[in-house]
Design a protein around this nucleic acid. Structure first.
Lengths: 227, 227
DNA sequence: CAGCTTTTTGCAGTTGATGCATTTTTGCGC
DNA sequence: GCGCAAAAATGCATCAACTGCAAAAAGCTG
């Protein structure tokens, strides 16, 4: 159980590099090593998704995937904790610090649900960047429900961070909603948005379907208070 | 199905047996076979939970569990699909037909959220019956977050049924809320209630904490509409 | 008891996953 | 280019989860 990994080691030469990163949407690739690392990772994800789409999850072995990607089976596990993670292309899409900061400070709207919505939007934005692989991942989850569990595992990795974020906000701007409930609210909005996006034929962005999900939730509540 | 024990008057043994069953919370066990089956199953769950509580999930093997329960390792897998399932004591707690029927007919209150709440209450009631094992399962999930995934898998088994139920109700009493969202709503209410129950030291029933969960959700929505 | 069904069990085999030692690759100063 | 240190890839051995199959045991029924 490794504790949270601090993201940036505030280097002094930030400006230009950060701009370049923002444009490319990829983290710093300082040399051949990092580039190869990324390439292999993507190759493994692509191989995994392609094979599973064709043969089904259980018929595909780690050996096949790594062979397809041109690496040894042992290397596969240097990149992913499990076969399923590779199929999902599980990225550690962290929340941007500014978004988190704003949320903790009680912003941007001051209304909890709306602000959670912003949080979820940030998560979905990260998914937009590599939308091809995310698309395939969603499709595969429909086909292989077993993968849904790993989706849950993915949330779980962020759960601790989310918990901290919620608790931090609560400290300065108290609210009564249980942290556990908020965690699942995030999952609910995420998943509902992604499913809606899939049903819309992946047109536009995933985040475009988030307002609808929130509206449904409000309808649900409104219908209960005043039928 | 004649009474196997010829008695002087009508069959009092039936009455006794049904009473005993009601007290134990067990369905009718027609013979030695069924009784043993149930006993073995419970023995396996108890062994699994005890061992995991003591040594941790990863340190416990199926071999240990089955040895502890006095069956062969191969038999273990006749009872559970996975080690985790045994630890959770995963029961196929189905919803009672009358509850489902009422819900599908647009009842009991006619307000979607409240009616979903009744559904969840029924689910929680099932958990109350074998509350010792459920308690231990919840505690273990806190300790071993990995088990949360299996909890998700558990929902998944009911997801199809829930989907049918929601769709059936929608047919006669239309509502706009997405089925996917409702599924996760059920999970959210279930989990929030269970966690609250645990935090309350398992006093009373799990379902007692459901109204609070719903209230939190309503607060959340109300706070967003009119801050 | 004898025949039938259900359940358990042993055994062999596949696969996912991990630890460790070794080799290969890459980055870098010369 | 050259050699050296760090990082990554690889090979190998190992463990544990899980499955299929067929034989044996146990419960059921007449």
């Amino acid at each position: 159980m490794a504790p949270t990994t601090p993201r940036s080691t505030d280097a002094p030469t930030v400006g230009l590099r950060e701009l370049a990163d923002a444009l490319e949407g990829t983290p710093v690739e300082r040399g051949l090593r990092e580039r190869k690392k990324r390439a292999r990772r993507l190759a493994l994800i692509d191989a995994a998704q392609r094979l599973v789409a064709e043969h089904g999850l259980d018929a595909v072995t780690v050996e096949m995937i790594s062979a397809q990607a041109g690496v040894s089976p042992r290397t596969f596990f240097n990149y992913f904790e499990s076969k399923d993670d590779a199929v999902l292309g599980a990225e550690d899409a962290g929340l941007p610090d500014d978004v988190v900061g704003t949320f903790v400070d009680g912003g941007p709207t001051g209304r909890l649900l709306s602000d959670v919505q912003v949080l979820v939007a940030a998560l979905l934005a990260a998914a937009d960047e590599s939308h091809d692989r995310v698309r395939r991942a969603i499709d595969l989850v429909q086909q292989e429900p077993r993968l849904l569990q790993r989706h849950m595992a993915w949330l779980e990795r962020h759960q601790e961070r989310l918990r901290e974020i919620f608790d931090a906000r609560r400290a300065a701007h108290p609210f009564s909603t249980d942290t556990e409930l908020l965690n699942l609210l995030v999952l609910m909005l995420l998943r509902t948005s992604l499913v809606a996006w899939e049903r819309a034929g992946y047109r536009g962005r995933a985040a475009d379907h988030l307002p609808s999900a929130v509206a449904q939730l409000l309808d649900l509540a409104a219908g209960d208070v005043a039928p």
